[in-house]
Amino acid sequence: ESETFDVELTKNVQGLGITIAGYIGDKKLEPSGIFVKSITKSSAVEHDGRIQIGDQIIAVDGTNLQGFTNQQAVEVLRHTGQTVLLTLMRRG
């Protein structure tokens, strides 16, 4: 069981404050995608409180990250504006 949710964030001096990890899993058993690996102290993400380590980032400002490499996803996140809309999925 999984839930998908949107989080809109405004960057602070730390930026968004997440590091991400790309993961290619076994299609049947484990998900592939871009996941939140860590959250920086005092960052926008930590202050917001809704995003957790292990959440999958589905889209950034409407750009679907399906099939993106870790590096491609980093580039998408790097080129966002001051306000960012993240679409995430959390597995229950």
Results as ranks from 00 to 15, higher is better:
Gln52Asp: 06
Ser43Asn: 06
Gln82Glu: 13
Ala73Asn: 00
Gln66Tyr: 08
Gly17Gln: 02
Val7Arg: 01
Thr80Tyr: 01
Leu9Trp: 05
Thr19Trp: 03
Gln52Lys: 13
Ile58Ser: 01
Gly17Val: 03
Ser38Asn: 11
Asp6Lys: 15
Asp55Lys: 00
Ile53Lys: 08
Gly49Tyr: 04
Arg50Tyr: 02
Thr4Ala: 06
Val60Ser: 00
Val36Ile: 12
Leu77Arg: 02
Glu1Trp: 08
Glu75Val: 00
Val60Met: 04
Ile18Arg: 01
Glu1His: 05
Arg50Val: 06
Met89Val: 12
Ile34Met: 07
Val36Asp: 01
Leu88His: 01
Ile51Cys: 00
Ser2His: 08
Val84Cys: 07
Ser42Leu: 09
Met89Arg: 14
Thr63Gly: 03
Ile20Arg: 03
Lys27Ser: 15
Thr40Met: 13
Gln14Cys: 11
Ser42Lys: 14
Val45Asn: 06
Leu77Met: 10
Arg91Tyr: 09
Gly25Ala: 11
Gly15Phe: 04
Gly25Ile: 05
Ile34Arg: 03
Glu75Thr: 09
Arg50Leu: 07
Glu75Phe: 02
Glu75Tyr: 05
Val36Cys: 04
Gly17Pro: 09
Asp48Leu: 05
Asn70Cys: 15
Glu46Lys: 06
Gln56Pro: 01
Ala59Leu: 01
Thr83Asn: 11
Ile57Gln: 02
Thr87Arg: 12
Val76Asp: 00
His79Val: 08
His79Lys: 14
Leu85His: 14
Asp55Pro: 02
Lys37Gly: 07
Tyr23Trp: 10
Ile58Leu: 13
Thr83Cys: 06
Ser43Arg: 09
Ile53Asp: 04
Gln71Glu: 13
Val76Lys: 10
Asn70His: 14
Gly92Pro: 14
Ile39Leu: 06
Ser2Pro: 07
Ala44Pro: 13
Val76Ser: 08
Ser38Lys: 11
Ile20Leu: 11
Phe68His: 09
Ile51Met: 03
Leu65Ala: 00
Gly54Phe: 01
Gly49Thr: 07
Ala44Asp: 10
Gly15Thr: 07
Leu65Ile: 14
Gln72Tyr: 05
Asp6Gln: 11
Arg50His: 05
Ile20Trp: 09
Leu65Gly: 00
Arg78Cys: 06
His47Ser: 12
Asp61Leu: 01
Ala73Lys: 05
Ala73Trp: 03
Lys41Asn: 10
Leu16Gln: 04
Gly81Pro: 05
Glu8Asn: 09
Gln56Gly: 02
Ala44Gln: 09
Met89Ile: 11
Asn70Asp: 14
